[in-house]
Simulated assay, not measured.
Amino acid sequence: MQWKVKESLSRRQLIMMSDKDHETVAAACPTGNPIDDCWRCGPNWASNRQQLASCGFGFGRDALGGQGGPVYIVTDSSDDDASLNKPGTFRYGVSLNQPLWIIFSSDMTIRLKDKLMMSSFKTIDGRGADMVTSTSLWTSGMQVTVALNHFDEGLEQRMPRCRHGYFHIVNNDYMEWGMYAVGGSANPTINSQGNRYMAPANPNAKEVTRILDDTIGDSEWMKWDWRSEGDILVNGAFFAPSGDGSGVKYALASSTDPKSAMIIDQLTINAGVLGPTIGGSGPLTGTGTGVGAAAGSGTGEGWGIPLVGRTVYGGSVTAPLPPSIFFSFLMVILCHLYVCIL
């Protein structure tokens, strides 16, 4: 996915931060966003990060992710040589063939130099860290929900790009795009509901959608099922629908009841960076036991995230590396989740 964090805290006038106890309290909680309301209203979420796994939504509501697995801390933002797959990097964590809850030791910029292939059972938890990357999200598979995101200025395309399968794009806020917002190839079904699409000033980039398949003509594309329902289109934005509106296909591309696009500001008010005081500051420490992990501890400057009872992996927080049995997992680069980050 391509993320750009830009003045994200300024969007959240309802969020108040307390320097005394380093807790974030939402002045307007709940917000109506089912994911945020599930975990964010509690002031001590950082001590129980894996509660987020119970906040499933859309087609992913039953996904386990890294629940029950050890915590992997990304401490190294480099991706200079993908073939080395260095411990402590983001690439190393997502390649390991076991459940992992992946967090970040500090603010960082990660620029991927090659395709990132994720193994199964991973949760990438960026809460509490300011993350900027330069990538794109391709989704290819059966049923995918893209929901409750704020796509800010400076993004070009692939939010997302869809291939095959059924895609529910619901209650997102698109502030701008360079080329297009939602693209597709290989006959995906796209169900866009309750989003706000704000077109850029460029008169040649007003269309929300883009067909990304040069092998077909208009007559073939018109058989694909793409629809916009309850979306707000701003500044000349337009969505090109296609297909016969078959209820059966859109039923397969419906994962939740959309909320009104009129409250999109409220639904996405917490999107973006939480801020630097989440969970307090101090050393990262962790102890625990698990598959391929001896009991141990590690220290290093970070966010003060309680990790007792979890194994910490990450090369540059001075925590011991797991035994050599783990390195056999470097060969596991298959995209079991049908999500490939390029």
Rank of each mutant, 00 (worst) to 15 (best):
Q51F: 04
N33P: 00
Q51S: 10
N48R: 12
A28P: 00
A26T: 05
G65W: 06
P70Q: 00
C41P: 04
V71W: 07
W39D: 02
P30F: 08
A26S: 12
A63F: 10
L64H: 11
A46Q: 09
S10E: 14
K20Q: 09
K20S: 13
H22L: 10
C29P: 05
L9M: 13
D19Y: 11
R12M: 14
D76G: 02
G65S: 05
D76V: 00
A27Q: 14
P30K: 11
L64T: 14
A53L: 07
G58T: 06
P70W: 06
W45P: 00
D36M: 11
D36V: 12
D36Y: 12
C38Q: 01
A28H: 14
A63N: 15
I15D: 12
V25I: 12
R40I: 06
P43R: 11
Q50T: 07
N33R: 03
F57L: 12
W45F: 15
L9C: 04
R49T: 02
A53Y: 07
D21V: 13
P70M: 01
E23Y: 09
A46N: 09
D76K: 06
R11M: 12
D37V: 01
L64N: 13
R12E: 07
A53V: 04
K20H: 10
N44Q: 09
A63Y: 13
V25K: 13
S54I: 03
S77D: 15
G42T: 09
C55S: 02
T31S: 15
A46H: 13
P30S: 11
V71E: 08
V25L: 09
T75A: 05
A28L: 13
I15Y: 02
G66P: 03
D79I: 05
N33G: 02
T75E: 00
L9P: 07
A28I: 15
R12K: 15
C38W: 06
T31R: 01
N33C: 02
P70I: 01
D21C: 04
G68M: 02
E7D: 14
A53P: 04
S8D: 15
A53E: 10
N33M: 00
A53Q: 08
I15A: 11
I73G: 00
S8F: 02
E23A: 07
G42H: 09
G56Q: 05
S78M: 09
E7V: 03
D36Q: 06
N44W: 08
R61Q: 10
N44H: 13
M16H: 15
S8H: 06
A27M: 12
G32L: 02
C38M: 01
Q67A: 15
R61N: 08
I35G: 00
S54W: 08
T31M: 01
L52S: 08
G42C: 05
S18G: 05
I15S: 03
G56M: 04
R49M: 14
A53W: 10
